[in-house]
Every structure is written in structure tokens, then in C-alpha cells.
Amino acid sequence: MSQSIAAKRYALALFELAQKNGQTGPIQEDLLELKKVFQTNKELSQLLDSPRLKAAKKKELLAELFKGANQLILNTLYVMLDKKRLDEVVNLVDEFTAYSNDAAGVAEAKVYSTVPLTADESQAISSAFAQKVGKKVLRIENIIDPSLLGGIRLQIGNIIYDSSLSAKLERLKRDLIGS
């Protein structure tokens, strides 16, 4: 999550409008695509930051590039353009996702394992750990890490649950050396 106060304010305003209009899900999907565009096309950011291009032309460009996007998103982009805050788009998406997840009782989690998790394993991990962090469900991203040797390492925000074989061996080593 970002530390940008501006991004949090824009995200909260957009989230409240999305909730009011019952469009939280579709807007979040559009925002994730928007984030990909801004992260992969640095030239777009440079073009939109250019003082040579008038604001009206920039708005036309945004309208053309994101013509399939929700109007609330386009309006948010226009406001951010007017306030010279388009550099906060990626942070806005992250903040919106955090507000949306919080409202839905969802937490983002990274599960590090030596092999890909099956759907059943992911569901079991989600069920077991969601309650521990006060959420209904975990949205799991599985990351393959052969250095674990076995077991899993789960990260939910700042909380890490480590039941990997490498961590257990390290704890055993410290206990043997310490005694």
C-alpha cells in the first residue's frame, strides 16, 4: 500500500462513488487494467506530464485510450490531470483495492512454496488463516521458492507465518548453537 495522502483521498472518493453506484467490482477490474497500462508504458506517463501538450489534448488522449473504462474512472483521471496528480495513478489503484478488500473482508496474501499450490490447498490456507487476521477470505498469490526446501511461508500484510523446512532447520541450528 502506498504512503501517498493524495492517492488515498482520490481512492476513497472513487470507492465511495463506486459503492454508491454498486459498481465496486467492475471499477476495480478496470483499475487493475489501468495500473498495468501505466506501469508498462512509461512513455504514456511522460507524454501526460509534458507541458507541451495542452490539458484538453491530454483529456482527449485519455478518453481515447480508456474509452471502454467506466466513466467514474475517466472522471477521476481528468480530475487528477487537472490537479497534476497523474503520477499517483498506480498508488490510487492500490489504495482503491485496499478499500475494496477491506469492505469485502478480503486480505491479500502471498504464499511461498516449493511447488504450485492446488486449488484445495489454497482454499485450506485461506480458510485457516483468514480468521487469524480478522478477514472472511484470503486472495492468495502463490510464489514458487525452492529455497524453502518444503512447507510454506505465508505473508499477509506485515504478518509472516513461516512453517518452511528451511526456517525450522534454522531455528534448530540456533537452538543447538545457543545451548
Rank of each mutant, 00 (worst) to 15 (best):
F96E: 00
Q39I: 08
S164D: 13
I156V: 15
L31N: 06
V115N: 11
S164C: 06
Q123P: 06
T118K: 05
A56Q: 03
Y99C: 00
N101L: 09
E88C: 00
I156P: 10
D49P: 01
S4G: 02
I156E: 07
V89Y: 01
K168I: 03
P116F: 08
F96Q: 01
S127T: 15
L14T: 04
S113M: 06
E60F: 01
K84T: 06
E64F: 03
L48D: 08
A11N: 13
E60I: 01
T40A: 09
E29N: 14
R153V: 15
K8I: 03
P146C: 12
A107M: 04
A69V: 03
T97L: 04
S2I: 12
V137P: 06
T76V: 03
S127Q: 15
L154K: 09
Q123V: 11
I156Q: 06
K54V: 04
L34S: 04
Q23E: 15
L154S: 07
Q131C: 10
Y161W: 09
S50K: 12
S2Y: 10
A7I: 06
G105S: 01
A124P: 13
D94P: 00
A56R: 01
F15Y: 08
N70G: 05
S126E: 05
Q23V: 10
S2N: 07
N158Y: 04
A130D: 07
I160A: 10
P116N: 08
Y161G: 00
N70Y: 07
A124N: 14
T114L: 05
D102Y: 04
D82Y: 12
E60K: 01
G157Q: 02
G134N: 09
K54G: 03
G134I: 05
D175I: 12
